[in-house]
Design a protein around this nucleic acid. Sequence first.
RNA 1: GGAAGUGUGGCCGAGCGGUUGAAGGCACCGGUCUUGAAAACCGGCGAUGGGGCAACCCAUUCGUGAGUUCGAAUCUCACCACUUCCGCCA
Length: 437
Amino acid sequence: MFDINLLRNDLQVTAEWMKTARGYDIDVSAFQALEAERKSLQIQTQDLQQQRNLLSKAVGQAKAQKDDAKAQQLLAEVAALPEKVKANELALAAVQERVNAMLYTMPNIPQRDTPLGKDSDDNVEQRRWGTPKSFDFTVKDHVAIGEALSAGNAGAQLDFETAAKLSGARFVVMKGQLARLHRALAQFMLDTHVNEHGFTECYVPYIVNADSMMGTGQLPKFDEDLFKVPMATDDGVKNRYLIPTSEVSLTNFVRDTMVDAAALPLRLTAHTPCFRSEAGSAGRDTRGMIRQHQFDKVEMVYIAKPEESNAMLEEMTGFAEKILQKLGLPYRVMRLCTGDMGAGATKTYDLEVWLPAQNTYREISSCSNCEAFQARRMGARFKNAQGKNEPVHTLNGSGLAVGRTLVAILENYQNEEGSVTIPEALRPYMGGLSLIK
RNA sequence: GGAAGUGUGGCCGAGCGGUUGAAGGCACCGGUCUUGAAAACCGGCGAUGGGGCAACCCAUUCGUGAGUUCGAAUCUCACCACUUCCGCCA
């Protein structure tokens, strides 16, 4: 949720930056009018409430003193008040509702040093690691490689046809060693984060309620990207939602809680499937495993103190890079420009892995500092050094997207005769196997 | 699915329709004592929002939402969550 104090205290400057960075128009005069209305209504309402409270207390006192005449007189005096109070309360709630709707639908404010830009073309490269291998044969893409690998009498190791029969487009079936490689990747990532990076491994629900989706910002604005699960309750059917990322489950751990300051930063990780309807991306990446309705991801979430959150973003990004390094996959780190950042983020690094068949780098991880945006929505706070309650900062990043990592391994480690070499780091997870063929 | 019960501040826990934001305890902060610490003792201590330059004042808040009432933590209804027992079950 957008910080209302930025609008109250620094409206012009905030509006200008939001326009420049997000192309988002804050209606300055509408906000000021709404604030003025809220203010006068609130003062008026509270004044009426006070009158009612004082008179009611007096009634109690009179009755305690057995002064019935006085009590009757006071009762006559209050009689008209409750109705007025009620009317004012309703009007105030309506105005506050409008203010909230505004704050809940606004994207977060990017950090000031964010590179300006329209889309991914304007992202700024920070560094590269590894050198793309040169092949002395024509490289195949992961689809061709995987479909040519045999799982014996079960058919191809990578099977989109069967997946389409079962579920439709944008799903995949993996079999045999490829399925095992997929599992191995998730195990390897999780183990690395837990054993070397100090994360707590978590198992989390894949279906969450609307409050959780609201907390991390998927709702109310991005409803159409979510898969809904109608669940019967005593008063009808209510939607729950399949998680589009375990960021939702992990970050909402701290919803409505006072987090112990001494416990910060919290480093949480989980391996889960992610479900995305991919509404509006018809025609993009239709071939292969790059863009699916269901994919696995190992997620990293931090709950941090405000003063350390940017440093934690660097740390988290480094941990994601570590996975790629261990797998020997060339990548580059991009600082996202204003136009390419997600709505909740103030600062984001994307990791892009080299895909030889596409002859380009493709996103495999995204690490963001959301600052207090989600924490304000969630009511996640801690006691700061001054003893005041303050929203925590939340960060999330992929560490990594498992499906896309599998794609990168198939393509970068392919051999001329169609086999795929298994990176050293994964062999312990593959029973010592060094080659898929 | 059936039955019963519970939901109060950072945590535990008391609470009669009336000056109850709510006893008590823990934790925390300040102080006394001590070479230092602990213990003991004294004092302070919820949150959110609003008004005010400020001292301060006001409103809201006892799972959530409606309702009864001049007045609700307390009464009524609905919902949510949790606990226990029974049934079913990977």
